[in-house]
Simulated assay, not measured.
Amino acid sequence: MQTYILGLIAAFIVTIATVPIVIILAKKWGFVDKPDHRKVHKGNMPRIGGIAIMIGVAAGVAVLWPQLGEAKDDMLFLVGGALILATVGLVDDKFALGAKTKFGGQTLAAICAASSGIRIEYIQIPFVGNLEFGILSFLVTVLWIVAIINSVNLIDGLDGLAAGVTTIAVLTMLVMALGHPIAYASVIVLSLSLLGSTTGFLLYNFYPAKIFMGDTGSMFLGYAMAIISMMGLFKSVTMFSLIVPLLILAVPLIDTTFAVIRRTLNHQSIGTADKGHLHHCLLAMGFGHRKTVLIIYGISFLFGGVAVLFSQTANWVSLVFLVVILFGILMFAEGIGLIGKQRKPLRKALGKMQLVKRYE
């Protein structure tokens, strides 16, 4: 346990020490995020904080390397995928790559990771049993990694949002893995390293931020979470091994799903940027920057707690929870306008509440 704590501290300290250097280099080399009609910040901001996150994670893994066991053999492929994403992210943060080019880089990184021994070979469906993917496991793994990468990338719209949501998700996975420290040693190592790095980065990234993580950081965080979930959650003995990771990563996945639905209904390309994401809707209601982020943190904690509950309760109890949660998600999304362009009754009501508080 002392060794694990050292890994966490190493990732935390290295990230804190690296961020100021990255800020200087970002400004010097022109890696800055300029404000536009979609963004809420003012003035140019250094935007390659993801480099500090990656260096922090590397430091944590280096300290905990002996604890990885057999997973050491897979690390070469995983590092290769991370380096591909870092390259694509840096180029995008500098020159703003097109959606297809970014998708190609993400797919290449996912293929690199899937070439290791870490794959989604099956899922366990409630009351049915195992669904084996067989030769399709490689494709399923690539799709999962790309989906999580893009989900985290899309929610990175406010100071501290992506880093905080990732921290909560990783913390949830860590809590579940600590119950089986020998079987999930690699999950614990990567989770602690990522946890130390993201919390260290949040000291600079929470509102008002001094640096953004950029696509370099958001894509890496999505990649890392996808890898950790495949190492542990999909191989869990619970009958809900598919639902648990979906719950833990619910906030970015839900936001991405409704973005696709919204853009399809509005006859837009699904790669077209808009201001209909969860954080945009909350801001439009009148919630401030900091409060919006804290609300989404709260939702993330809620889903994390439900995920842990799912892994501990009987199947029928979990199924009831699932139905209630899905109904609540649909009502909430419809209410705040996540699906369409129209201002919904719930969104109006909450907006008026905020205006009243503001003028009291």
Results as ranks from 00 to 15, higher is better:
Ile135Asp: 04
Ile5Leu: 08
Pro208Cys: 09
Met231Phe: 10
Pro252Asp: 00
Pro208Ile: 09
Ala284Pro: 15
Gln124Phe: 01
Gln2Ala: 12
Ile145His: 02
Gly49Trp: 00
Lys27Cys: 13
Arg358Val: 06
Val19Thr: 09
Gly304His: 06
Tyr184Ile: 09
Lys39Asn: 06
Tyr122Trp: 07
Ala147Trp: 05
Ala163Val: 15
Leu195Gly: 07
Thr18Phe: 01
Thr313Tyr: 08
Pro208Val: 08
Asp36Ala: 14
Leu326Met: 15
Phe12Asn: 05
Val61Asp: 00
Leu178Tyr: 03
Met173His: 02
Gly179Asp: 12
Leu246Trp: 02
Glu70Phe: 14
Val79Met: 11
Thr256Glu: 01
Pro20Gln: 04
Ser269Ala: 14
Leu294Pro: 02
Gly105Ile: 15
Gly89Gln: 02
Leu221Lys: 14
Glu132Lys: 15
Trp144Lys: 06
Leu85Ala: 12
Asn153Cys: 06
Val140Pro: 07
Gln312Ile: 15
Pro126His: 06
Arg358Trp: 02
Lys291Thr: 13
Gly50Lys: 03
Leu136His: 10
Ile182Asp: 06
Phe133Arg: 15
Glu132Pro: 15
Gly200Trp: 02
Val165His: 06
Ala314Gln: 09
Val57Phe: 04
Phe133Ser: 12
Asp36Met: 12
Gly305Ile: 08
Leu108Glu: 02
Leu68Trp: 11
Gly164Thr: 12
Phe287Gly: 05
Ala82Tyr: 01
Ile339His: 02
Pro35Val: 08
Gly298Ser: 13
Gly81Lys: 12
Gly7Asp: 06
Thr87Ile: 08
Leu283Glu: 02
Thr216Arg: 02
Ile5His: 07
Met219Trp: 04
Tyr223Asp: 00
Leu8His: 11
Phe77Glu: 03
Gly222Gln: 04
Ile228Gly: 04
Leu265His: 06
Asp36Gln: 06
